[in-house]
Amino acid sequence: MFLVAFPFLHEWPFFRMFLSEFRTFNATMFAVWLLVLLGMNLLTGYSGQVSFGHAALVLASAYLTAVLSQQYGFPLWGAIGLSGAATALVGWVTIGIPAVRLRGPYLAIATFGLMLAFPQILKLNVLTQWTQGALGIRGGVVGPPGFLGGVLDGRAWMYYVAMSVAVAMTVLFVNLTRSRTGRAFVALRDSEVGAEQMGVDVPRYKALAFGVSSLYAGIGGGLFFAVQGFVSPDSLGLIDSIFFLVAIVIGGLGSVLGSIVAALFLTFQSEAISALAGFVPGTNNLRNVFYGASLIAVIVLFPKGIAGFFQRPLWPKLREWNLGSLWSSRS
């Protein structure tokens, strides 16, 4: 109900009092980030692989959507679907399957490299006829279909589309993680050897996790272009990939609720920090220090993962906290 009514809320004087900053645009971006972070969480939180290049996948799909819809006349929604599928295929076949052979740090290096190199590839002169080089690609205005024309403006329409896709894919995600496949992912994260003994086809599931993760990144990327109406080589970069990681680690690895918290975090973090900087000067510049410290704190306190932390009663949790390790310094 709340999600449906959202675009209209701030039209009401009552909500306008404290919702003025909650623009529909933010809520739409929340839906986009939710998709991306669900994918990221599937990869890291469920299957235990790490990617520092997820923003590059999002960016690639945004570009593909832009090129298909602006230059080849594809309908926007078709272009998004196609880009999502293409990204999934790329993630599965060209990253996921080769990645199976790579241990953690090597995969991290490869994705880190992709992330840094990709904007430069987009700017290559030979690709300019498609990518428009450093200028980026602008999208047209997307309005609602005729019969809704009087009721919704373009922004509200975009909100409904993005939010519906996000909700649908979240439901799909929940079902996936509760299925045999989802349990296989978790088994694999907890122990590859153990998973193998349980009869899980480890390489297949690791690659599959990358594929599904890329599908979410791809759909998110397509919507990113649709919502922003613009994409350039510098729309997303290394720092965004790192923020994706920060978001899911703080939100909670291996949980859908965690991804939702993560998407909220990503949507509002910059406004929240700016607001905070109004009270405590310098906070803006210290932002990355907070985030870095939080990442480390979560990992140090919950070395076995934060998954399920919020679903259990408080008392046993305290014992899980790895507080002892803060004091012992002998190796």
Binding site: F290, I299, V300
Partner: peptide
Amino acid sequence: IVRRVEGTSDLNSLIVAMGLFLIFDGLALY
């Protein structure tokens, strides 16, 4: 920092490395 997560998993040490990345990035900016 590093000693706290050593030997737990590759994933943990990579995340900690990214945490360090952000901390030094932010400290320099500050």
